[in-house]
Simulated scan of single mutants.
Amino acid sequence: MAIGSTARKVLWARSSNVCAFPECDQQLTVNLHDDGSKSLEAAGIPLGEEAHIISGSKGGPRFDPTYPAEKVDTYENLILLCPTHHRLIDKREGAGFTVETLRRIKSEHELSQRRQKTGQEKRDDEIELRTIAAIEAWADRADLTRWEGVTWKLNAPIQRLKESEIASFTQLGEWALTRNWPSAYPEIKRAFDNYSLILCDTVNHIRKSFQPIEGKEEIWEIYREYKHRLMSQDGYDAALKDFEYRSDVLCELSLELTKAANFVCDAVRSEIDPLFRFEEGALPHRVGDGVFSNTFTREEYGSAERDRTHPYPGKKAIEARVREQGGSSR
């Protein structure tokens, strides 16, 4: 587990980017783990460190085997410090600073910082925290940690989905469509509006094209009429062509959905959290049957697409692309 965006934002906002150690008052800069941060550090600019009050590692500072592992990287177990005081509290496995002492230091520091803020600053902090919390809720609902598995199911030679997965897609589409994003973050709002458009088109395409497999009602696939009744050769060819067309459109929609999701991640990093999915990187787009072929690609909008209000061109354009290509891009 790693420190999430919400925990990080709450910690930095309530600490006002200042070291929590008594009488330090060192103004801190976020470490983006990039060349710019290295240059700042080399120039003597202190980078903030999100220190753990209770270590998650056996033998670490103030390690407590009874402390829940899922709480180690949460806001309640973090304190913002400068590098000097982080090293100080962790010396000799943290023997000089108890858990209770660090919690008191953190609480007193955050209360002191809050008293110095204006009403508008407090409201701005709350909007920022609520926004990043909604973004983390999206990341969980969209299953970003398993994105390659999501796209693979939409790109397999025979696309099949569980009924519960279709329901999750539908619920996510409704959630995305009804979000109100603060005007303070115009790129995030634009990215989510774009994501909502492609997601709704994908859900509608699945709903119109899929039917439950006979005898396995919990599994759905694109309806193949030629498998369910006798028909002439011309009828068979037309039904097969219809199946392939619906399958290819879904493949193209999954590609566009990956672009849109990566566009959202870029907007979040640009406007609110530079470290959002920093370690995980871009969402991968997976194509293949998992046996004879298995390809991962990085799908993102180009500069011309990003210049449009909505980079996603719309389902009609996707359908035209499939017809022009004679199939999908897989």
Rank of each mutant, 00 (worst) to 15 (best):
G36C: 05
A317C: 08
T258L: 06
G314I: 02
H310T: 14
R277D: 03
L111P: 05
R269E: 03
S39F: 05
A191G: 04
R103L: 14
R306Y: 05
A239N: 06
H285C: 08
I53P: 02
K162V: 07
P83S: 02
A261D: 04
D234K: 11
D124C: 09
P212W: 03
V249T: 01
T66V: 07
I188W: 04
K208E: 15
R114E: 13
V203E: 05
P157N: 03
E136G: 03
R160M: 12
I53M: 06
I272M: 01
P284S: 00
D73F: 03
S232M: 02
M231S: 07
S112W: 05
A137P: 05
Q26E: 15
S16L: 09
E23L: 11
R308Y: 09
E217K: 11
C200D: 13
L199W: 13
I166P: 06
V99C: 01
V291K: 13
E244R: 14
T145V: 13
R123T: 08
E271C: 04
E23K: 13
E187K: 08
R277C: 05
A282T: 10
E70C: 12
V249E: 05
L129A: 06
P46G: 07
D307V: 11
Q233T: 12
D64P: 05
Q159H: 04
K106A: 02
K208R: 15
D242S: 09
R141D: 06
L255I: 05
F21M: 13
A260K: 01
N17P: 03
K259W: 05
C265S: 13
R190F: 04
T297M: 10
F296A: 08
H285P: 07
G215F: 04
D25M: 10
S293H: 11
E76G: 10
T297C: 03
E280P: 02
Q233K: 14
N17I: 10
N262D: 00
D35L: 14
L129C: 04
R330D: 14
V287G: 07
E271Y: 08
E324A: 15
I79N: 00
L275N: 01
N262E: 07
D266Y: 00
A261L: 02
L275E: 04
A261R: 00
I105A: 04
L283Q: 02
V287K: 12
G44I: 01
D64K: 07
L240R: 15
